[in-house]
Write a protein that binds this DNA or RNA. Structure first.
Lengths: 204, 204
DNA sequence: TCTTATTTGAGAGCCTACTCCCATAATCGG
DNA sequence: CCGATTATGGGAGTAGGCTCTCAAATAAGA
């Protein structure tokens, strides 16, 4: 139920235990990062919290930064892409993007959404993590650019397309930074609202 | 001539030598970072290139990341703020911001502009540096928000103001990322063009 | 149940950022 | 020119991320 698209829980006890160990390590790591800071949390400490040997941590996660890598980003990305293509043509590119994002978030289970939000917020709030994920951000930006380009009959490197995508990226970043300071905010809602503001025009 | 606002070259030979050493270290560090990558460049290597002892490097720059910190960011920030206030009221907030940025860049000497561009590009291109400067980016965002808020008679935490600023930040980031891949681009010009596109509206 | 494959723990070890200290050398003020 | 100040080099030392190896524990399959 949690991940309808997931490849059906592996049968072997070995596999299940492995997955469980992995999850436990990551869970404690994220908790410690949030509570005590990223730099201040040593891998040794994480290992102790998860009750495994330090070397085991490195077996599962090649680097400390990988402890926070999201394995299902493409899942959301594809949902957005599919939703984007489904939007009625009378919507502007920005409008369609906004709607696709809203739908993709709405399709997540509350638990998945909460987990994703927490991780996204962690990533923007912790410089080292943001750095480790910058490449992924760029990939996302490129992917969105390709979508918008196709819909609007322009090329992906059209300056207008890039400006739009960059603006959306900035807005998303801003929303996450806000959410990092105020945990009461729901990034999905805030993003939708902020993109709505962009749609109305940026004139002030 | 290079920095008209600079506090007049210090007289003592000691001071001058100190400043020179500092510049040399930073110059070699930036060059090595660019040519061989940030992580791959050890402080020892930088020290060797600058012909100083490793401990001397740390004396001038507490951390490796500080090697790329810009000491004159506030200089540009203040220029932008002053220029912003000087824009005619018939301009939109975004238009005024764009004009202020254009003016501030135009006021720099070609050498200063080139140096700044190289550093800015380095910062966005190297994750560790981007991480180290994220805080500064946020500060800049807040400062711009305050300016826009005052001009438009809104509060700094008005969602519309924040959306605008976030969009501008995203555009600036996009421009720098572009410039990182294509050294032939002038970030200042590209930024002006991209903001122009934003002004025209983001509808596609 | 017995053999085989895999995972884990434990520990030694490397590398590099970063700190501290002190002797030496250079500069400054008189 | 001489003493006081200050910068530098060199080296010893710490911490933590990360690698590698090997033996013990555990699950898989026959």
């Amino acid at each position: 139920m949690t991940s309808p698209a997931g490849p059906a829980e592996p049968a072997g006890l070995r596999e299940r235990k492995k997955a469980r160990t992995r999850r436990e390590i990551q869970r404690h790591a994220l908790r410690l990062f949030r509570d005590e800071g990223y730099a201040a949390t040593t891998v040794e400490r994480i290992a102790a919290a998860a009750e495994v040997a330090p070397s085991t941590v490195f077996r599962y996660f090649p680097t400390k930064e990988d402890l926070v890598a999201l394995d299902d980003y493409h899942g959301l990305g594809e949902a957005v892409a599919a939703g984007f293509a489904r939007q009625p043509p009378e919507l502007s590119a920005l409008g369609a993007l906004r709607a696709a994002l809203r739908d993709a978030f709405a399709a997540l289970s509350p638990a998945d959404r909460a987990a994703r939000n927490e991780r996204d917020v962690l990533i923007v709030a912790v410089p080292e993590l943001w750095a480790a994920n910058l490449g992924m951000v760029q990939d996302g930006l490129r992917a969105v650019g390709a979508l918008v380009a196709e819909r609007s009959g322009r090329t992906a490197d059209d300056p207008a397309v890039r400006a739009l995508c960059a603006a959306v990226l900035g807005v998303a970043l801003g929303v996450l930074l806000d959410a990092a300071r105020d945990p009461g905010l729901d990034p999905a809602e805030e993003l939708d609202a902020a993109l709505g503001r962009l749609e109305e025009g940026v004139a002030l």
